[in-house]
Structures are given as C-alpha cells and as structure tokens.
Design a protein around this nucleic acid. Structure first.
Length: 506
RNA sequence: CGGGGAGUAGCUCAGCUUGGUAGAGCGCCGGCUUUGGGAGCCGGAAGUCGCAGGUUCGAAUCCUGUCUCCCCGACCA
C-alpha cells in the first residue's frame, strides 16, 4: 500500500478541527481520559509543558516574583465575596460536598457500591482560579506599606466545568500559572499588569515563535471582577483567534471584598490594589494550531524536547556498531560544545531497531526541528544528512559534519525566525480595516474569515448584539493598530480614535 | 438545558432490518525476509457485544428501563 501523501489525515484544508485532533494523536502528546472533559498529558506533551514552565518561571523570578502554593479547594463562601467574580464563575464550578465513602450493598445486584456520606457543613469549590483564596492569605500577610508590593505566582491545576472540551484548548481541568500581586497604589498595580502583558507578548514571540496582537479587552470581555484586562491574541491557521494570555488589573475590588488593608505612609488604613495574570496548557494547543502542518507537529526550537534527533542508518550488520558509535560521539560533541538560547543542544539518538522510514516519520509527526540521518557512507565522507522540519519531509541536505556542529545553533535560530516570520505575514495579511457595517456583515458570512479592524465607539449592548449576530467577539482594542486619527464608528456613526479588532475565537 | 447520534478486541468500526458457533482493518506478540525510507509473507493472543430486567428452546440482534460518551447550540483560559 502506498503511504499517504501527508502524515496527517485529514489535511488542514479538508477539516481543520479533525486535523488538530489527529496532530495531537500522531505526536503522542495527549489523549482523552475516562474522566469527563479531562485529558491525559503524555510524555511528549508534558515535556513541552515543562519547557514552557521552566522558561516562563525564569522570567517571573527575574521580575521579582516568588512561587507559592495554595489549596485546591476553596470554601464556597470565599467565592461569594466579590459579586461579579462569583457570577462569572458560578456556572462552571465543580463542588465538593462530602468527605467520606460508605460501602453499601445493592440489594438487587448484590454488588458493593461506594456511596458518598459525611456531608460537609460548608461545601468546597474546586478552584476555577484562586483570587479569593489567595486574597484571604494576602489579607493576613499585608499589614504595612513595607509589605508591598507582594508578588506571588503559583503553578497549579484548575477546574472549569466546560461544556465542550477539546484537548489542550479547552479541558475541564487544565494546568497553568496564576500570578497574584498586591500593590500600594493604582499606578504600581497597573504598571505590573502592563509589565506582565509585555512579558507574555515577548515570551510568545521569543519562545513559541508566535506573534500576537496585544491589547485591552472591552468591558464585555473582561475577567469577572477586573477593572482592566489586557490580552495577547493569536491568529491560528484557520484565522480564528486564541486568547493566549491575560493580565488583569483588579483595582481594589478584591481588596475591599476580602479586607486586604495596610497602614499607609501617612498612617491611614488603605486597601491594596491587586492584579492577576495567567497562561495555561492552552499555549500548547495554540502552538499546534499556529505552527503544525499536514505532516504533524512543528515545534519552535526553544521548546522542543529534542532539538536534534539522530537516526543511525544501519543497512549492514558489519558496520552497525561503528555507525551507532559515531552517532553517539556526534551527540556528545553537540551537547558539550554548543548552546542554543542558553541551553546545551538537546540531542537524541534513536537507535531503535525499526525501519529508517518508520523512525523518520515518527519524528516528523512529533515536530522535532532537526533530523540527522547518518549511515556508513556519511561516516566515510564525514557528512550528515540534514533534514529540517520546516522543509518538506523528503528534503535532504548533505553537510560536513564539522560544519553542522559549528552551525547547529544558527540553524535552530533560523528555524525560529522562519516560523515567526511565516506566521507574522499570515496574521498581517488577514487583518483588514473595515469602516462600514454592510462590509462588516458580509465579511462574517464566510465560514473562514480573518479579523476586522473597525473604528469603535459602541456601547456594551451594541457590541454584544454584533457579537451574537455574527458569532464573533472584539478580541481586543489593540495597542499597536491605533492610527491616532478620527474615523467614523461603524455602529454609532460618531467620530472616534478607538479601533476594535473583531474575530471568531476558540 | 434544547436538538441529533453512538456504545461490539487496545483503536476505528461491520454485523442488528429478517434472533441460531463473535467479525474486519489497524495495533500488539512470535518467526522468516527486508532495513538510505512510513515494508512483505506466515503464524498467534485478545471481546460474558455499556449495565439491569423482560420476551424466547435460544438475544449483540426484539422490548422496557438505566448509565455513559460523541456531534450541533447556550458557557468558556
């Protein structure tokens, strides 16, 4: 049977959502579990998360944050404290109501079942986010302006009982980091929110090779309880938007609800200003939808668990040992002598006793940036057969072994640049200014539609009406796409300098 | 919560209308041949057909109940 033309069926063009699922499966990153809406993250997917985690964590530490850990279970009453927040999360909370199980024999079947007993006097909510329980700790920890700012981050799992789960993009349980900070003044808190916003933008660009549109959410799209929500929005290959990271200025809303006060410089009691911000395992879904192709995952080099996979080609038994030995020697040299983005080159030698094609395609589907095939002929000529994931799967380049060792970091850097460049061009080509309502409506009648940038002075109600009608949202009021000139708002007809970016979203 | 669909081998599914020994492909295990290309041939293991009840000599198949999952809406990092 002839092998399929692409490693993934269907292709992106044929059925994008199904393609996505197949990429996850082909790369062996995760699978659905027996627990509704929850996924099992497999080693290849988790290794990616670990790289995201350690690289982001380093940036948080550099900017003065410390990690801590708070309980998974939140007393129900805590969630009730901030009204908007309570309302925002009420419909998606899993609740713990009992604390023991009693074996009980079913009189009909004779089987023993475990029945929850021991009802809790106050139920617990499995955290959908931790503002409230961290706020409670902050109220104990903060006494004086000298205790501020308080800069805390936690790496944790959270649970939101989603109606429509999708691996990595939307699961009932997901992994994330949530930063929570408290500040003496509004200015400081807003500065923190903006700094993290910028940090997320930089991180996506420099580590995931993903360009974003950074901006502010409208009131309708804001985090429940926030005064201001900043977001980084990613356009993925079907031109939909993914909200990849948000940072919120919470004002004094939570401080007042939770009594987080301090003695100010003038001796008066004041409420702190808080922020919160997070990115999640959704980044992995974003990365797939942004970079993967019809042959599977394509990893940005900084996050790839292996930068280079060496596939020893051993057609003859008598040269087998020498080939494998030579591959390991090359791997050692690369690890010892070269760095990429501050880390030693991560090299893996795949010496499994499988056909060359089988191994090659496995690493293609897993998205490894560089594959090297090395056989007896290459050893003799001191060359490597170099294949880059961003090139077609059958593209080969023979390079001197020494010059590969010397150039490996630059090849990885080049791959990163090309990924970023490709996606930047795609994004820019699919953001269109739109100044009139009829054009606006026509645009959204297409199944696949890029984003529209419109002059905007509408109300929350007008925004929600348009959103509902076209199944779109204002992704953000972009920071950098404001031209500073007056134009006519598409719904109100009023002159406005504000530009809103609309799109369909995941 | 509304509207559709499906539960049979590890995975994807056929079989059910018309009741009569449990099937295929992929994967897995073993052997041989291959190994610069996702290989071939031969052999093998694997399922109380979601669960409970009913009809029947006999139920994956018919009937009743029940649970779960998937898809389309509403919610959403």
């Amino acid at each position: 049977m002839a092998p399929p033309k692409t490693a993934i069926t269907p292709t992106r063009a044929e059925d994008f959502p199904e393609w996505y699922q197949q990429v996850v499966r082909a790369a062996d990153m995760a699978e659905n579990s027996e627990t509704r809406g929850c996924m099992v993250i497999k080693p290849w997917g988790y290794a990616l998360w670990e790289n995201i985690q350690s690289q982001l964590d380093a940036r948080f530490k550099e900017t003065g944050h410390q990690n801590a850990y708070f309980p998974l279970l939140i007393p129900l009453s805590f969630l009730e404290k901030e009204a908007e927040h309570a309302e925002g999360f009420a419909t998606e909370c899993a609740v713990v109501t009992h604390h023991r199980l009693e074996p009980e024999k079913d009189p009909e079947t004779g089987k023993t079942r475990l029945v929850p007993t021991g009802r809790l006097t106050e139920p617990y909510v499995i955290r959908p986010t931790s503002e409230t329980i961290i706020g409670a700790a902050f109220s104990r920890w903060v006494e004086s302006y000298r205790d501020l700012p308080l800069l805390i981050n936690q790496w944790a799992n959270v649970m939101r009982w989603e109606m429509r789960p999708r691996l990595f993009l939307r699961t009932s349980e997901f992994l994330w980091q949530e930063g929570h900070t408290a500040h003496e003044t509004q200015e400081e808190a807003i500065e923190e929110t903006r700094m993290i916003h910028q940090l997320y933008e930089d991180f996506l660009r420099d580590h995931l090779a993903i360009p974003v549109v950074a901006g502010e959410k409208t009131e309708a799209e804001r985090f429940p309880g926030a005064e201001m929500t900043l977001t980084v929005e990613v356009m993925v290959q079907d031109k939909k938007a993914i909200q990849a990271g948000t940072s919120h200025y919470l004002g004094q809303n939570f401080a007042k609800a939770q009594d987080i006060t301090f003695a100010g410089r003038d001796g008066n009691e004041e409420h702190v200003h808080t922020t919160s911000w997070g990115v999640s395992t959704r980044l992995i879904g974003t990365l797939i939808m942004a970079h993967a192709d019809d042959d599977g995952l394509v990893l940005p080099p900084r996050l790839a668990p292996h930068h280079v996979v060496i596939i020893p080609v051993t057609p003859k038994e008598e040269t087998r040992e020498a080939v494998i030995e030579s591959c390991h020697a090359l791997a050692e040299t690369l690890r010892r002598e070269q760095n990429y983005a501050g880390d030693p080159i991560r090299v893996h030698v795949d010496e499994r006793d499988l056909g060359g094609g089988v191994r090659k395609w496995e690493w293609v589907k897993k998205g490894v940036p560089i594959r090297l095939e090395i056989g007896p002929r290459d050893i003799e000529s001191r060359k490597v057969c170099l294949q880059r994931r961003i090139e077609p799967a059958n593209a080969k380049e023979f390079m001197d072994r020494e010059s590969f060792i010397r150039n490996a970091p630059e090849i990885l850097a080049d791959i990163h640049r090309k990924l970023l460049d490709r996606l930047t061009k795609f994004r820019d080509a699919n953001i269109t200014p739109c100044n009139a309502l009829p054009n606006f409506a026509e645009h959204w009648s297409h199944a696949v539609a890029g984003w529209l940038l419109t002059p905007w002075a509408g109300s929350r109600e007008q925004e929600e009406e348009l959103s509902k009608e076209h199944k779109i949202t204002i992704r953000c009021l972009p920071n950098d796409l404001q031209d500073g000139r007056d134009a006519t708002c598409i719904v109100t007809g009023k002159p406005t300098m504000c530009r809103a970016l609309w799109g369909r979203a995941y």
